[in-house]
């Protein structure tokens, strides 16, 4: 939210990240073991205090990218630098200490909270694990955290099922904040919530970012929400980055045909605007990462496809300061 890329210091630097999931057994693949190239050479940087929005269709590798950054998966290749330190090469102990600095907010406010723990206990747990508080102080900090995310501390004794979806997501946010992280991966934090509740959580995330000077990787598929919350946008398609640009540039001057189609697919809640809008309706389905099309993986659906597109994979290149695109048109 803060347009403070002021000092422009890079906090998270992702370089040529790859995450391949092996496919073993099964009837089809008994002999040959294939790879799902969930993330296939992703490069981007997130500056301190900014929000990078990561968008793309289901299965394109957004969650996997986020989890690789947090070292919840061990990447197949590539580097993840956090304040210049390569996380992949860190020892177990050093990584554990580093983990405090980076947290995850999940998409699913139902599945991500332990149903047998009270809201208070859920928020206290990370404080205990990292030895940040105990005894009375523990209780006080937990109450304070609940208050920070807009819940009443008297709710600390309740169990997750006694909360609404939006309230549960607030508990998830409080849990992530408990250890005073500097970086949070927000994986579709509002997708499962009702429209009327989404705005509450988005505002909360914005306020917390200012208050605690947080850096966000904000994963979502709602481009209007991403525009609202992000300083820069990265668009993913089938494990690769298609385009990266500042918010304004990404929305006003999108270059990649996929970005254009994504934007045009977002309906605008105003029939008068909709009636006049130009639409790009893609044909075909999202391809499988198990068997991606050769060349540019978007070429079978691309309205501007050229012969080269099915042969040569386009590199991500900077076409104007801060605006990179992977497309043979540029």
């Amino acid at each position: 939210m803060v347009s403070a890329q002021s000092d422009g210091k890079v906090l998270v630097d992702v370089q040529d990240l790859k995450m391949y999931f092996p496919v073993t057994g099964g009837i089809l693949f008994q002999r040959k073991v294939a790879d799902i190239k969930a993330v296939d050479g992703v490069t981007f940087a997130i500056k301190e205090g900014e929000t990078l929005g990561l968008v793309g269709e289901s299965g394109c590798g957004k969650t996997t990218t986020g989890r690789c950054i947090l070292q919840l998966y061990k990447p197949t290749a590539g580097k993840v630098l956090f304040e210049g330190t390569d996380l992949i090469s860190l020892s177990g102990g050093a990584m554990r200490r580093m983990r405090r600095r980076m947290q995850l907010i999940f998409q699913d406010p139902y599945g991500s909270l332990n149903p047998r723990m009270t809201a208070g206990a859920i928020v206290e747990e990370p404080l205990k694990v990292h030895g940040l508080a105990k005894g009375r102080e523990l209780k006080e900090q937990a109450s304070e955290l609940l208050r920070t995310v807009g819940l009443n501390p008297y709710m600390a004794d309740r169990y997750p099922h006694e909360f609404s979806g939006g309230q549960r997501q607030r508990i998830g946010v409080a849990r992530a904040l408990a250890v005073r992280p500097s970086f949070i991966v927000c994986d579709e934090p509002v997708s499962a919530l009702d429209v009327s509740i989404q705005a509450q959580i988005i505002n909360l995330l914005g306020e917390l970012q200012e208050q605690f000077h947080l850096t966000y990787l904000f994963i979502a598929h709602d481009l209007a929400v991403v525009r609202h919350i992000s300083d820069r946008i990265a668009v993913m398609y089938l494990g690769k980055i298609a385009e990266v640009a500042d918010r304004k540039e990404a929305y006003e001057n999108p270059l990649h045909p996929y970005t254009k189609a994504l934007l045009s697919a977002v309906p605008i809640p105003d029939p008068l605007v909709e009636a006049k809008r130009e639409r790009i309706i893609l044909t075909g389905d999202v391809p499988s990462p198990l068997n991606p099309p050769p060349g540019c993986s978007f070429h079978p659906r691309c309205p501007y496809v050229m012969p080269r597109c099915s042969q040569v994979t386009p590199e991500l290149k900077e076409v104007s300061p801060g605006h990179s695109v992977a497309c043979h048109l540029y």
Binding site: G166, S196, I197, Q198, A199, Q200, G206, I268, D270
Partner: peptide, 25 residues
């Protein structure tokens, strides 16, 4: 009115804050 105000719109200038409907269904 509340529903329409609470969703960000691609065709409008970005606001710093959304206007949520308070409370729960």
């Amino acid at each position: 009115l509340g529903l329409l105000a609470s969703v960000p719109r691609l065709d409008q200038p970005r606001k710093t804050k959304l206007a949520p409907i308070e409370g729960l269904p």
